[in-house]
Design a protein around this nucleic acid. Sequence first.
DNA 1: CCGTATCCACACCGATACTG
DNA 2: CAGTATCGGTGTGGATACGG
Lengths: 133, 133
Amino acid sequence: MTDFIRQDSLNRITNGDLGCFKELTLAMFSGKWKINILYHLDHDGDYHFNELTRLLPRASHKMITQQLNELREDGLITKHTDKHHSITYTTYSLTPLGKSLIPILDMMYDWGKKRISDLKLDTASFPLSNKNL
Amino acid sequence: MTDFIRQDSLNRITNGDLGCFKELTLAMFSGKWKINILYHLDHDGDYHFNELTRLLPRASHKMITQQLNELREDGLITKHTDKHHSITYTTYSLTPLGKSLIPILDMMYDWGKKRISDLKLDTASFPLSNKNL
DNA sequence: CCGTATCCACACCGATACTG
DNA sequence: CAGTATCGGTGTGGATACGG
C-alpha cells in the first residue's frame, strides 16, 4: 500500500479533495525503510548510497533506490553527486523540510519504546497472546 | 504494505529483533483508514459500525471491518455490543492506549496543513509540478 | 445491523541482470 | 559506485454474496 497511499494522497492534493492533512504526512514516511533512512540522515548526517545499503542490510538494492527517489520527489532529501576518476559518489542529505519531520519521528520512537517496555512488564495482556506466546 | 509492515513488526517484537521502536508505532496507524478512524473516535467520541461506514464513504465495508479488528488486536480501541430486539448494535471506543497516540496524529495534522499551505503559496516548487500542473 | 467468505484485478517487492 | 529494467511469487483491497 505504501506507494499507493502516497500516490493517492498526492493525486488528491492536486484535485483538491484530500480527506485529511494527516494523510499527506503519513504518505511522506509510510514507505518501507523511509523512517529508517530519515532517521539516519538526521542523526548521523549525510550518507552515500552504498553506506545506506550497509546500514539497512535487509533492504534490497531496488527498494533503497525507490525510497530515496520518492523522498527526493517529496522534497525531504536532496542528492549531490561527485566524480572521482570516473567513479561517482552520491551524497544524500536532509532538507529543512525533511528535518521538520523529525520531531514526529521522535515522538513515534518514544511511543514505541514505552509500548514495548509496557508489554514486557505485562505479558498477560500482550495483544498477540493468542498467537504464539 | 500496510498489514505486512504491521505483521512484520509484531512478529519481530516476539522474536526480539525489532529494528527500531518507530516501526512499531508506524505499524499501529499506517493501515488504510486507521488514522481517520482513530481521529473520529477521539474527536467525536464513540461510534457504531454503520456510522463509520457513513463517515468514510470511500472505504469498503470489508476494509473498515479489517482495520477495526487490527486496531482492537493492537489494544487501541475496544468494541461493545448491545442487542435491541435481535438487532445488534456495536460501539467502538478509544482505549487509553489509543488516546496516547493522538498527540502524534495531531502533529501529523499540523505538519500536513502547513505543508499544503506552503505548496499553495509556492507553486513553482511543487513536487508534482512535473506531472500535471 | 454487523460482520465473514470468496473471488479476482492489481500493486508490491525481491532477485537478477544490465548500463554508465 | 550508483543506479535502471524486467520478471515472477505474494499480498492487498474492492465487489459480491452469504450468515448471525
